[in-house]
Design a protein around this nucleic acid. Structure first.
Length: 426
RNA sequence: GGAGAGAUGACCGAGUGGUUGAAGGUGCACGCCUGGAAAGCGUGUGUAGGGGUAACUCUACCGAGGGUUCGAAUCCCUCUCUCUCCGCCA
């Protein structure tokens, strides 16, 4: 969420930001109106409370000295009634204000291109050259099923659509990728490894911004009020919810493997085949808590850390900066890494690296105490996939396929595959 | 799942209806002391939200939410969490 005081004193900036994101800037006017109403009510209520406190003390003193205070007691009885009614009004206004402010997205960073949707994303750079095939490359799902390392059909029987069984070398490849990425980020990039809970409570989902707006994107358990995590970002960012981190501990780098669960409501027609859009997929996630001063340097580093994975795997990709029309609700700036998929003949998102500035931290109340004695300030949070495992598997199958349907294993992964160089039909 | 105990500030720990935002201690910060440090002494040390240019001031907060009362950390109810014992279990 944005800072209420910031919105109050910079309504024009917020309106402009909403316009750039193709949202209705009128909510800012609603906000200002309700904010004013709120302060009015608070003033009246607090005045009465102040009075009650004073008179109550008087009553105490009178009674102690054996004098009669009935008249004051009677008067205060009605004042208390009034206060109760006012408090209720304040509560309602607060709720209204909260729902407005929680619905306002983050203000895009000045370097974010203005645009209406993903077609306006700015391509920053390309890495690697898509391979020339002497045959027509197959989609990863055909490759996987032919090799009997992916089984979509039975997963549909056992669970439903958008689930998959990884089998044999497919399972091993998936596991190899997880370990390879975790090893890279912990030993080369300085991240601390975390295995988080795969379910979280409502407060955590609100802390990172999935709730209240995006409830339909998640799986919610029916016998407890827990949600399956849509990304490790949720439990890992919430580690420090309602805490004050000693300034000397910043920056904190965490890397977490987790399965991710997404309802994918509203994605019915899209990516119905293959590993691209599943209800459950694996991901290695990078999360940073940093000093506000250098969060944009940290974003560049984060992006480089994620890119390193694709470089070592030797798979072509490009980097784009999301335009204001494509930018996520909580993000001030996001780079997407898009991997080359030969069958699709296109680049597809495989990592999303974002700087949320203090948007999440304010919501989750994650702070640090600046040097000496100052007031606690919100940290900046960042996260990025490092990478989505399922999509990486898809990219390996498609980019490393041979004409006979076998898959060459990228060199860096071979130590994780017992030295295997190629997955072939058994 | 059954039985019991508990939840107070950065931490420990007093406090059962009226200057308790909260004793005392620890820690921390600053100052004095010292050649320097330790010890000692002194001062200070929560968060959020209103009002005010400001000094400052008001309100709320003792796990959470309700209730009783002129007045609640203190009494009542509900919930959550933690601990101990039993049961179950990877």
């Amino acid at each position: 969420m944005l800072d209420i005081k910031f919105v109050r004193s910079n309504p024009e900036i917020v309106k402009k930001s909403l316009e750039k994101r193709n949202n209705d800037p009128a909510v800012v006017d609603d906000f200002l109106k309700v904010d004013e109403e709120r302060r009015q009510k608070i003033m009246v209520a607090e005045e009465l409370k102040s009075k009650r406190n004073k008179v109550s003390e008087e009553i105490g003193n009178l009674k102690k000295s054996g004098q009669n205070a009935d008249e004051l007691v009677l008067e205060m009885r009605s004042v208390s009634q009034e206060i109760k009614a006012l408090d209720e009004e304040v509560r309602q206004v607060n709720e209204k204000l909260d729902s407005i402010i929680l619905g306002i997205p983050n203000v895009p960073h000045e370097t974010v291109p203005t645009g209406k949707d993903d077609t306006d994303n700015r391509v920053e750079e390309h890495w690697g050259t898509p391979r020339e095939f002497s045959f027509s490359p197959k989609p990863h799902w055909d490759l996987g099923e032919d090799l009997d390392i992916l089984d979509f059909e039975r997963a549909t029987k056992v669970t439903g659509t958008r689930f998959v069984f990884y089998k044999s070398w497919g399972a091993r490849l998936e596991r190899a990728l997880i370990n390879f990425m975790l090893d890279l980020h912990t030993t080369e990039h300085g991240y601390k490894e975390i295995i988080p809970p795969f379910m979280v409570n409502r407060d955590s989902m609100t802390g990172t911004g999935q709730l209240p707006k995006f409830a339909e994107d998640m799986f919610h358990l029916s016998n407890v009020d827990y949600f399956l995590i849509p990304t490790a970002e949720v439990p890992v960012t919430n580690i420090y919810r309602d805490e004050i981190i000693p300034e000397g501990n910043l920056p904190l780098y965490h890397v977490a493997y987790s399965p991710c669960f997404r309802a994918e409501a509203g994605a019915y027609g899209r990516d119905t085949r293959g590993l691209i859009r599943m209800h459950q997929f694996n991901k290695v996630e990078l999360v940073k808590f940093v000093h506000p001063e250098n969060s944009y340097e940290e974003l560049e580093k984060l992006r480089k850390n994620a890119e390193k994975v694709l470089q070592l795997l030797e798979i072509p990709y490009r980097v784009v900066t999301l335009s204001t029309g494509d930018l996520g609700f909580s993000s001030a700036k996001t780079y997407d890494l898009e991997v080359w998929l030969p069958y699709f003949e296109t680049y597809r998102e495989i990592s999303s690296c974002s700087n949320f500035e203090d948007f999440q931290a304010r919501r989750a109340n994650i702070r640090f105490r600046p040097q000496g004695k100052g007031k606690p300030e919100f940290v900046h949070t960042l996260n990025g996939s490092g990478l989505a495992i399922g999509r990486t598997t898809a990219a390996i199958l498609e980019n490393y396929q041979e004409e006979d349907g076998s898959i060459t294993i990228p060199k860096v992964l071979r130590p994780y595959m017992g030295g295997l160089e190629r997955i072939e039909k058994e």
